[in-house]
Computed example of a mutant assay.
Amino acid sequence: MQFKKIENADVAEKLTSLLHQAYAADVRLGIHFAASSVTVENVRKHIESTPTFILEDDDGTIVATTSVRLPWSDNPSPFGLPHLGWVATNPDYQQQGFSKQIISWVVTNYVKPELYTPAVTIGTAADHPWLLSFYKSLGFKVIDITQKPNAPRAAYLISIFDEHRTRLIDDAYLQKTLSKQGLSTY
């Protein structure tokens, strides 16, 4: 198995298929993340504009994936921080810890050393039966739950690496939600 950053959109079809397969379980629960029906063209655009990572087995099968939405991109996070998205595991490899591995690898090998960020966020459906507790088990803490039109309630979580630097981020929504949760204050 090998972790790697996708350098071009050659794997867009394989990644689209993985996303559709992985998010099908959520659709069956009545939770419709955009990744569950994303098009190959939109995956290509995503790869070109958003750092996207995969865990690939020896025969080239994509086992797991996640991407890092950047605050300055066309699809920024809700906060002034990098935001993990499109966390997905190939259904043939689920329940083996691969989502945990790719999240940990991306944070340790890209988010912290390359972006020098003091924290990272992730989001999920607030009412998802297992994802919220899964992200909490990785050390993420809920900072906000919101309701957007025509969407499931969203839960936003944060993993803070440097509280002092996180308090210095000039993002009113971030500071308000951190303060409200007692995680950080000015």
Rank of each mutant, 00 (worst) to 15 (best):
Y135G: 09
N8I: 00
L183T: 05
L15E: 01
Y110E: 05
E56V: 06
Q175G: 13
F140I: 04
I158M: 05
N75I: 13
A126N: 11
L183W: 08
F53P: 00
P51Y: 07
L138N: 00
L29N: 00
F98L: 01
T66A: 04
K14M: 09
V40E: 07
R44M: 07
I143M: 14
Q181H: 11
S49G: 14
P113M: 08
A154T: 12
T121V: 08
A126K: 11
D170W: 12
V111W: 08
G123I: 08
A9S: 13
W72I: 15
L15W: 02
G30I: 05
D74I: 15
P76M: 14
F134K: 08
S73L: 13
I158W: 03
W72G: 06
S36Y: 00
T39Q: 02
A151R: 12
D10H: 13
M1P: 01
R165M: 14
W105N: 10
G80Y: 08
L84I: 06
F140P: 03
A12P: 02
I143A: 12
S99I: 07
K5F: 08
I160R: 02
T65G: 01
K4S: 08
T52S: 02
H46M: 10
T146K: 04
L174P: 15
R165H: 12
K4H: 09
A151T: 10
P71E: 10
H164A: 15
G60R: 00
V11A: 15
A125H: 13
S17K: 10
D144S: 09
N150C: 05
Q147W: 06
R167W: 15
A35H: 03
F134R: 10
S49L: 12
A119S: 09
A25D: 04
Q181I: 07
A24I: 10
V68A: 02
S99R: 03
I62L: 07
E48D: 14
I158T: 07
N75C: 10
